[in-house]
Protein backbone atom coordinates (compact mmCIF):
# COMPACT_ATOMS: atom_id res chain seq x y z
CA UNK A 1 0.00 0.00 0.00
CA UNK A 2 2.65 2.47 1.09
CA UNK A 3 4.95 1.58 -1.77
CA UNK A 4 2.14 1.99 -4.28
CA UNK A 5 1.50 5.54 -3.08
CA UNK A 6 5.18 6.35 -3.37
CA UNK A 7 5.40 5.03 -6.92
CA UNK A 8 2.45 7.16 -8.10
CA UNK A 9 4.42 10.38 -8.69
CA UNK A 10 6.94 8.51 -10.83
CA UNK A 11 4.20 6.95 -12.90
CA UNK A 12 2.32 10.21 -13.37
CA UNK A 13 5.57 11.86 -14.38
CA UNK A 14 6.38 9.17 -16.93
CA UNK A 15 2.93 9.35 -18.49
CA UNK A 16 3.03 13.12 -18.80
CA UNK A 17 6.51 13.02 -20.29
CA UNK A 18 5.44 10.35 -22.75
CA UNK A 19 2.63 12.53 -24.03
CA UNK A 20 4.95 15.49 -24.40
CA UNK A 21 7.46 13.31 -26.20
CA UNK A 22 4.89 12.10 -28.72
CA UNK A 23 3.65 15.63 -29.11
CA UNK A 24 7.09 16.99 -29.89
CA UNK A 25 8.00 14.12 -32.18
CA UNK A 26 4.83 14.60 -34.19
CA UNK A 27 5.91 18.21 -34.61
CA UNK A 28 2.55 19.58 -33.68
CA UNK A 29 1.81 23.15 -32.85
CA UNK A 30 -1.75 23.80 -31.74
CA UNK A 31 -2.08 27.39 -32.88
CA UNK A 32 0.10 27.63 -35.93
CA UNK A 33 -1.63 28.08 -39.24
CA UNK A 34 0.25 27.13 -42.41
CA UNK A 35 2.62 29.68 -43.83
CA UNK A 36 1.20 32.14 -46.32
CA UNK A 37 4.25 34.27 -46.55
CA UNK A 38 5.99 32.67 -49.46
CA UNK A 39 4.76 32.35 -53.03
CA UNK A 40 5.30 35.95 -53.93
CA UNK A 41 6.73 36.76 -57.32
CA UNK A 42 10.29 37.89 -57.66
CA UNK A 43 11.10 41.56 -58.21
CA UNK A 44 11.97 42.87 -61.65
CA UNK A 45 15.65 43.48 -62.24
CA UNK A 46 18.32 43.48 -64.90
CA UNK A 47 21.96 42.76 -64.21
CA UNK A 48 25.24 42.75 -66.11
CA UNK A 49 27.45 39.69 -66.25
CA UNK A 50 30.58 40.03 -64.15
CA UNK A 51 32.71 38.56 -66.89
CA UNK A 52 31.04 40.14 -69.90
CA UNK A 53 29.86 43.75 -69.94
CA UNK A 54 27.56 43.23 -72.90
CA UNK A 55 25.69 40.29 -71.41
CA UNK A 56 22.65 41.29 -69.34
CA UNK A 57 20.19 39.09 -67.57
CA UNK A 58 16.56 40.12 -67.17
CA UNK A 59 14.38 38.79 -64.40
CA UNK A 60 11.75 37.68 -66.94
CA UNK A 61 14.18 35.32 -68.58
CA UNK A 62 14.35 33.28 -65.38
CA UNK A 63 10.79 32.03 -65.82
CA UNK A 64 10.41 28.46 -66.98
CA UNK A 65 13.35 27.33 -64.91
CA UNK A 66 13.98 26.68 -61.25
CA UNK A 67 16.52 29.29 -60.15
CA UNK A 68 18.64 29.64 -57.05
CA UNK A 69 19.71 33.18 -56.30
CA UNK A 70 22.60 33.78 -53.96
CA UNK A 71 23.95 37.12 -52.79
CA UNK A 72 27.66 37.08 -51.94
CA UNK A 73 30.67 39.35 -51.60
CA UNK A 74 34.38 38.84 -51.23
CA UNK A 75 34.37 40.77 -47.93
CA UNK A 76 31.79 38.45 -46.42
CA UNK A 77 33.43 35.69 -44.42
CA UNK A 78 30.31 33.56 -43.87
CA UNK A 79 29.87 33.50 -47.66
CA UNK A 80 33.15 31.62 -47.99
CA UNK A 81 31.90 29.10 -45.48
CA UNK A 82 28.84 28.21 -47.53
CA UNK A 83 30.50 28.56 -50.93
CA UNK A 84 31.52 24.93 -51.48
CA UNK A 85 27.94 23.83 -50.87
CA UNK A 86 26.81 25.32 -54.17
CA UNK A 87 28.94 22.73 -55.92
CA UNK A 88 27.03 20.11 -54.00
CA UNK A 89 23.71 21.64 -55.05
CA UNK A 90 24.93 21.89 -58.63
CA UNK A 91 25.73 18.20 -58.60
CA UNK A 92 22.56 17.06 -56.88
CA UNK A 93 20.06 19.23 -58.75
CA UNK A 94 21.54 19.76 -62.22
CA UNK A 95 18.37 21.39 -63.61
CA UNK A 96 18.71 24.29 -61.16
CA UNK A 97 19.98 27.55 -62.61
CA UNK A 98 22.35 29.00 -60.03
CA UNK A 99 22.53 32.77 -60.13
CA UNK A 100 25.04 34.65 -58.04
CA UNK A 101 25.04 38.35 -57.27
CA UNK A 102 28.22 40.10 -56.31
CA UNK A 103 26.82 42.46 -53.70
CA UNK A 104 28.37 45.88 -53.05
CA UNK A 105 31.76 44.53 -54.01
CA UNK A 106 34.74 45.59 -56.03
CA UNK A 107 34.54 43.70 -59.34
CA UNK A 108 38.21 42.71 -59.24
CA UNK A 109 37.83 41.36 -55.72
CA UNK A 110 34.78 39.36 -56.74
CA UNK A 111 36.65 37.78 -59.63
CA UNK A 112 39.57 36.96 -57.39
CA UNK A 113 37.20 35.45 -54.82
CA UNK A 114 35.63 33.19 -57.44
CA UNK A 115 39.07 32.17 -58.67
CA UNK A 116 40.12 31.13 -55.19
CA UNK A 117 36.93 29.39 -54.15
CA UNK A 118 35.77 28.17 -57.55
CA UNK A 119 32.74 29.35 -59.49
CA UNK A 120 29.58 27.30 -59.01
CA UNK A 121 27.31 29.94 -60.55
CA UNK A 122 25.72 29.59 -63.96
CA UNK A 123 25.65 33.37 -64.13
CA UNK A 124 27.29 35.96 -61.94
CA UNK A 125 25.44 39.26 -61.93
CA UNK A 126 26.74 42.59 -60.69
CA UNK A 127 24.82 44.31 -57.91
CA UNK A 128 27.33 47.06 -57.28
CA UNK A 129 25.00 49.50 -55.53
CA UNK A 130 22.95 46.82 -53.79
CA UNK A 131 19.77 47.83 -55.59
CA UNK A 132 18.79 44.30 -56.57
CA UNK A 133 19.42 43.02 -53.08
CA UNK A 134 17.31 45.86 -51.85
CA UNK A 135 14.39 44.82 -54.03
CA UNK A 136 14.71 41.31 -52.70
CA UNK A 137 14.59 42.57 -49.14
CA UNK A 138 18.06 41.28 -48.37
CA UNK A 139 19.42 42.61 -45.10
CA UNK A 140 22.56 40.65 -44.52
CA UNK A 141 24.97 38.51 -46.43
CA UNK A 142 24.82 35.75 -47.43
CA UNK A 143 21.24 35.30 -48.44
CA UNK A 144 19.73 32.68 -50.73
CA UNK A 145 16.42 32.44 -52.59
CA UNK A 146 14.88 29.74 -54.76
CA UNK A 147 12.44 30.71 -57.51
CA UNK A 148 10.07 28.24 -59.17
CA UNK A 149 9.13 28.04 -62.85
CA UNK A 150 6.42 30.67 -62.44
CA UNK A 151 8.87 33.14 -60.97
CA UNK A 152 7.61 32.79 -57.39
CA UNK A 153 9.88 32.74 -54.38
CA UNK A 154 9.49 29.34 -52.76
CA UNK A 155 12.44 29.37 -50.41
CA UNK A 156 14.45 31.97 -48.60
CA UNK A 157 17.33 31.67 -46.21
CA UNK A 158 19.35 34.36 -44.48
CA UNK A 159 22.83 33.40 -43.37
CA UNK A 160 25.07 30.65 -44.67
CA UNK A 161 23.47 27.47 -45.95
CA UNK A 162 24.33 24.23 -44.24
CA UNK A 163 24.26 20.65 -45.43
CA UNK A 164 21.26 20.07 -43.22
CA UNK A 165 19.27 22.89 -44.79
CA UNK A 166 20.07 21.62 -48.26
CA UNK A 167 19.01 18.09 -47.41
CA UNK A 168 15.97 19.00 -45.35
CA UNK A 169 14.57 22.04 -47.07
CA UNK A 170 16.02 22.45 -50.54
CA UNK A 171 16.22 18.91 -51.89
CA UNK A 172 12.58 18.22 -51.06
CA UNK A 173 11.49 21.04 -53.34
CA UNK A 174 12.57 19.00 -56.35
Amino acid sequence: MNRAVLITPLMVLTTICLFFLIFILLGKNPNDPPSALLNKSLPIFSSTNLYDNDDTLLSDSLKGNYTLINFFASWCTPCRAEHHLFFKIQKEIPELFILGFSHKDDLGDSKKYLEEEGNPYSFVGIDRDGKIAFDFGVFGLPETFIINKDGEIIFKHTGPLTKKIIDDEISILF
Binding site: C76, T77, P78, F139, G140, L141, P142, G159, P160
Partner: peptide, 11 residues
Protein backbone atom coordinates in the same frame (compact mmCIF):
# COMPACT_ATOMS: atom_id res chain seq x y z
CA UNK B 1 20.60 27.68 -26.77
CA UNK B 2 23.91 29.45 -26.71
CA UNK B 3 23.47 33.21 -26.36
CA UNK B 4 27.06 33.78 -27.47
CA UNK B 5 26.76 32.51 -31.03
CA UNK B 6 28.60 34.59 -33.57
CA UNK B 7 26.36 36.18 -36.14
CA UNK B 8 26.88 34.52 -39.50
CA UNK B 9 25.36 37.46 -41.31
CA UNK B 10 27.20 40.76 -41.40
CA UNK B 11 24.81 43.51 -40.38
Amino acid sequence: SNPFLVNSVIV
